[in-house]
């Protein structure tokens, strides 16, 4: 039952990552960016990778394979990790702007990697902590 709930969570989050990753790449290639979806080839690539990991997990779970849950958990961990990386980079940008006396907007930090990571963090707290606790001592 728990795996099924996590599978649905992985499917939704994976699809969101895939959609926003594609949007970021399209924006980078064609020019105009959607609000809160910056044009970034590499940023989009990372979102697509996270989405692919989550969706592979969902596919394997649907096929009854043991490792499916591993893909969903690692995908969720990557979601949180890249959210943290983007947030740290944005924080450093804010600090740099403050040092240089330049303007900085909090909207600069609101990228898909950050707001999708909020969903990822909820899933991480719900399921993944127990999974990775096993890893820390494995």
């Amino acid at each position: 039952m728990n795996n099924m709930v996590q599978g649905v969570f992985g499917a939704v989050l994976g699809a969101l990552y895939a959609v926003f990753g594609t949007l970021q790449i399209v924006a980078a290639l064609t020019g105009p960016a959607v609000p809160f979806v910056p044009a970034s080839l590499f940023g989009g690539f990372v979102l697509l990778v996270i989405g692919a990991v989550l969706l592979t997990g969902v596919r394997n779970l649907a096929r009854g394979l043991d490792d499916g849950i591993g893909f969903v958990n690692v995908g969720t961990l990557l979601s949180v990790a890249f959210g943290a990386v983007t947030l740290l980079a944005a924080g450093a940008g804010a600090l740099e702007a403050a040092i240089a006396g330049e303007a900085w907007s909090v909207a600069d930090a609101l990228t898909p990697a950050v707001y999708l990571a909020v969903i990822g963090a909820a899933g991480f707290l719900a399921w993944c902590r127990a999974f990775f606790r096993g890893l820390a001592t494995a």
């Binding site: 592979t56 043991d66 591993g70 893909f71 995908g75 990557l78 990790a81 890893l135």
Partner: peptide
Amino acid sequence: GMNVSEMVDRVVTDRYLGIPIFLALMWG
């Protein structure tokens, strides 16, 4: 049985996803 470490290995050394995950981590 298949432990957590082995499950994570399946993901990060996956034939198709291993290199993209690595590239994403390097970008990060």
